[in-house]
Computed example of a mutant assay.
Amino acid sequence: MAHHMSPSDHDPNSDSSKARLYNPYQDLQVPMRNLYQLPTSPEFLFVEEAKRQRRSWGENLTFYTGCSYLGGAIGGGGAGLVSGVRSFESGDTTKLRINRVLNSSGHTGRVWGNRLGVIGLIYAGMESGIQAVRDTEDVWNSVAAGLGTGAIYRAAKGVRSAAVAGAVGGVLVGVAVTARQAAKRYVPI
């Protein structure tokens, strides 16, 4: 049941076909390059958003979680590589050695990546929440978020462990923020 087309079906000048072919660009009098020149400045719905020079909470969440997971996966993969090489035995074939290294790197990379990704997720949520409550942008928001992140991450291990992890988190974030400010001041970029 194939449809047989006559030669006049394709010819727009034939008398049997009075329809014209559709050209989507025929009424468009603008040069094509002007259609695809998109603005490079950020666009905001509200003036308050345009005045702030920081990422939104959703962008922070994505950024910190992604960077933490990637860093953990790379660090864990390196640690897994070392433990895989250490587990070599004298009678192993090359295939077996490669398999051990790949399995160890993949497993350790996933574990570390997931742990650090969760820490980044908690930190981003805490920092955005503290900034929203205090309505200021300063170093203390980051330090408080580090304290809270450490405490929440280790809360299941007990109060003492949560307190120690909170202190460690606050100190680490304080050092990181101070290093970032010193780098902005003293390193010409």
Rank of each mutant, 00 (worst) to 15 (best):
V85R: 01
R115E: 06
S87L: 13
S68H: 11
I74L: 15
L102I: 14
G80W: 11
T93Q: 13
G78Q: 13
Y64A: 10
G109S: 14
I122P: 00
L116D: 02
C67N: 12
T94V: 11
L116E: 01
S90E: 08
T108Y: 04
V111K: 13
R110C: 05
K95A: 13
R86G: 07
S104T: 12
T94P: 00
I98Q: 10
V85S: 00
F88E: 04
I119N: 05
H107Y: 11
A79I: 14
T65R: 03
I119L: 11
A73T: 15
R97D: 01
Y64P: 05
K95Q: 11
N99H: 07
S104I: 04
R110V: 05
D92A: 10
N114M: 12
L70D: 00
W112K: 06
L116S: 05
T93F: 11
I122W: 01
W112Q: 07
F63I: 00
G77Y: 14
F63E: 04
S90G: 00
R110T: 08
G117V: 02
G77P: 14
G72I: 04
A79Q: 11
I98P: 00
N103V: 02
W112S: 08
T94F: 09
S104Y: 05
I98H: 05
G71A: 14
G117E: 01
R115Q: 09
V111D: 05
N114Q: 11
L96S: 15
I122D: 01
